[in-house]
């Protein structure tokens, strides 16, 4: 399995989700870089990036607390009803979980969104209303609004699906340190899209991403953190 090439693996490690972490000032830049380059769809293990960023902290969240908070990106795409959706405006003041992926992805995308769906379903209806779950397609050519809706309904009927201009998607993802590349159509007709598979959690207080979930985050991590996110508990 490819490892991050940053070579910084000296940080304390632990089993997933059980250790909280925060970064000192010096570590902040490092953390942001790692989020960019190493937190992808994950390889299904706790090695690599996950270890690098895990240190102890006093945060109530099990997700990775970001020292450098990301602004919610400027992004207007079509939602699953085909209407324009302004991410910044229409999720303002809401806790928001943001993930970039594509529907013809068999492994990481449905696993991640499914885990979020399970954790959302464990919340009360009031809590559920406090969190917007947004899935942005990295394969807009095939992920039409209808295709997205059908796929998302398997994980959460209220999940927001956005699709449209891939260049806009790439630009928005880049501001969050999420890598998105042009999809490749394989000989057998299947599609491979390379995309960072981390989930970002934006707080209702300032609409900034404070917490990041690597793709190997367990459903228990989401179950632990989503009630906090619904309440807007600071990270």
């Amino acid at each position: 399995m490819p490892r991050p090439t940053t070579g910084t693996t000296t940080a304390a490690t632990s089993s997933r989700g059980t250790t909280r972490r925060a970064f000192g000032a010096a570590a902040l830049g490092l953390a942001a870089t790692l989020a960019l380059t190493a937190c992808g769809s994950g390889g299904g293990s706790t090695d690599g990036a996950a270890k690098v960023v895990k240190e102890t902290s006093n945060s109530p969240y099990q997700g990775t607390v970001l020292a450098k908070q990301f602004e919610k990106p400027e992004l207007v795409l079509d939602d699953t009803s085909g209407q324009p959706f302004d991410l910044r405006k229409q999720t303002a003041g809401h806790s928001t979980l943001l993930f970039f992926g594509y529907t013809s992805c068999p492994d990481v995308c449905p696993t991640t969104m499914g885990d979020i769906g399970v954790a959302m379903a464990a919340l009360s209806p009031e809590e559920q209303k406090k969190i917007d779950v947004v899935f942005v397609s990295t394969d807009p050519e095939r992920d039409t609004p209808k295709v997205l809706r059908t796929w998302l309904d398997s994980m959460g009927k209220n999940f927001i699906g956005l699709t449209g201009d891939l260049n806009k998607v790439k630009a928005a993802a880049k501001t969050l340190g999420v890598m998105v590349e042009d999809p490749i159509v394989n000989k057998d007709g299947s599609v491979t899209s390379s995309h960072g598979a981390q989930v970002l959690a934006f707080m209702p207080s300032d609409d900034k991403a404070h917490v990041l979930y690597l793709s190997n985050s367990s459903v228990d991590t989401y179950k632990h953190d989503l009630p906090l996110l619904a309440k807007g508990v600071p990270a």
Binding site: G43, S194, H195
Partner: peptide, 15 residues
Amino acid sequence: TSVTMHRSTDSTMQE
């Protein structure tokens, strides 16, 4: 009709 073996990596998957 098609079953292929893949490995998910940091940001994509490889056959």
